[in-house]
């Protein structure tokens, strides 16, 4: 990866999954946020919610800049999902593992974003999981496999910078493999 590369990554997932928090945890610049008061306390009890986008930047050791875009979570903002996904090299999908709809959310967001940016890699970060044995995460991997979507699944604490960086590094690794192999095949 060279310094002249400008990489765009999209963070998505349902309301309250931690998209804004994740970008805040790793951005090198003060993140741009569009949070407003949340009037839908039925879906999530939090005070504020993103209605436009989040934006942050992360500089890699080789000088490349990763541009981080966070989407609103609610389906009524689906038009922003498409706008923000233009030109993205991959998607980090965050799921709140403590919610009753976690597996359903995983399936619906993965399928939707698979359609919005087909062929680009996914990495899944599941937060607030019960315990840290791998069996908990197996359910999520299986839910993806059932939809024939191949993506690594990590249990994360999205407030933790190292955890969020793990998701990004994994996504970049998959992306590099994808862009490298065609060149290898052609030579």
């Amino acid at each position: 990866m060279s310094a002249d590369q400008d990489l765009k990554i999209v963070f998505t997932g349902p309301m309250g999954a931690g998209k804004t928090t994740a970008i805040r945890a790793i951005s090198d610049i003060p993140p741009i946020c569009t949070e407003v008061a949340n009037s839908d306390r039925v879906t999530h009890a939090k005070d504020s919610t993103t209605v436009g986008m989040d934006y942050g930047q992360l500089q890699l050791s080789d000088g490349a800049i990763v541009r981080l875009y966070g989407t609103p979570g609610q389906a009524r903002f689906a038009f922003m999902w498409e706008i923000l996904s233009r030109g993205a090299i991959g998607v980090i999908l965050l799921i709140d593992g403590s919610t009753a709809t976690a597996l359903e959310d995983l399936g619906s967001y993965a399928e939707t974003f698979r359609r919005i940016i087909p062929g680009q890699p996914f990495v899944i970060g599941v937060g607030r999981t019960a315990g840290d044995d791998g069996r908990e995460l197996d359910k999520y991997a299986q839910a993806l496999a059932d939809r024939e979507i191949l993506a690594p699944v990590f249990g994360v604490d999205i407030r933790n910078r190292e955890d969020v960086l793990l998701l990004i590094e994994t996504l970049l690794c998959i992306f590099e493999v994808q862009v490298t192999e065609p060149a290898y095949a052609a030579s």
Partner: peptide
Amino acid sequence: AAMSSSLQALSEA
């Protein structure tokens, strides 16, 4: 309504 709130929030930003 949804688009308006996005525009509004981006304007604020």
